[in-house]
Amino acid sequence: MRQLSWLIAAVLAVLVLAACGGAAPAAAPAAEAVVTEAPAEEAVEAPSPAEGELPMVDPLTVTGDIVTAGSSTVYPLSEAMAERFINEGYSGNITIDSIGSGAGFERFCASGETDISNASRPIKESEIEDCAAIGRAPIEIRVGTDALAVVVNPENDWLPEGVTMEQLAQIFSADVVNWSDVHATWPAEPIQRFSPGTDSGTYDFFIEAVVEPVFGEEAETKFLDAANLQLSEDDNVLVQGIAGSKYGIGYFGYAYYAENEGVIDILSIDGVDATPESVDANSYPLARPLFIYTDAGIMQSKPQVAAFVNFYLTYVNEEVERVGYFPASDEALDGARAAWLAAVGQ
């Protein structure tokens, strides 16, 4: 009898292990954070809100779940805000899926599964129409600014002065194979290209800001026809690829560069380095806005969503630089706060 029960226990253990083993690969490609309940350790001191602005949020009183999805660029920022929200006493579950801006809007507007959509580009007309079809009117909330980092391997010694926007478009086009095809003094070795996947806001932004000015209508064809092109939604795949390829080049959100400084090197663009000053002054050519989107109806029916967005707007500037991005301008944040107030009817 005892042997039998041992046997059953062993079988159960194996089954459980097998189930875990099976689940792991499926979860691996999509970075998904399910931040669960955490005890409120820090006492919430009452920070005085700026005058005439958002009402105070006390995360201790907020319950209910929040579902968010979207841009992998906004993901680290939203994750940091969610963590802080939980540390200050929020007791529900908040999920943040890192699936790309396009897919995020798909879930927000077409299937209506999410409460908040993270995006590294403004919403498109077609997506607004999809939202309207399920009775949602997206509210745009600016939370920060990203500077796209164009990065190379530390062994790269032919680009000490960075690249120009035009060279960058050439490097990522099917017109050239070797580095020397772009500039005669560069090495005659094939360019290893690393890019975020075609559904990410980062990819859209790069095509629009870098490739289209040079190649116009043909931009996407030129870009995607290039040889030695690796596309991945997982920015860590890109980082590893560039870190392992002397002749590699790639681009992604600044936060991933900040996290991997030393393993990869950032290039200046048109002679401008990505710094808080250059991003603020709009002189860095690859800066772009970061947004979260929600809807008035959702904020009214789910007070936890309104509370989280309020909390996000209140404290985002204290987290944004630690995550690796740049703060949005005060006007943009004020606009977002006004939009929040209008949506919740205060």
Partner: peptide, 25 residues
């Protein structure tokens, strides 16, 4: 010795969290 993508690899990459139901992808 160079990179390549298999059928399964493509399916994982495209469906790995990032899918628009109405797209050709």
């Amino acid at each position: 010795f160079t990179a390549g993508e298999t059928m399964t690899g493509y399916m994982v990459r495209i469906s790995g969290g990032d899918i628009s139901y109405n797209s050709v992808d």
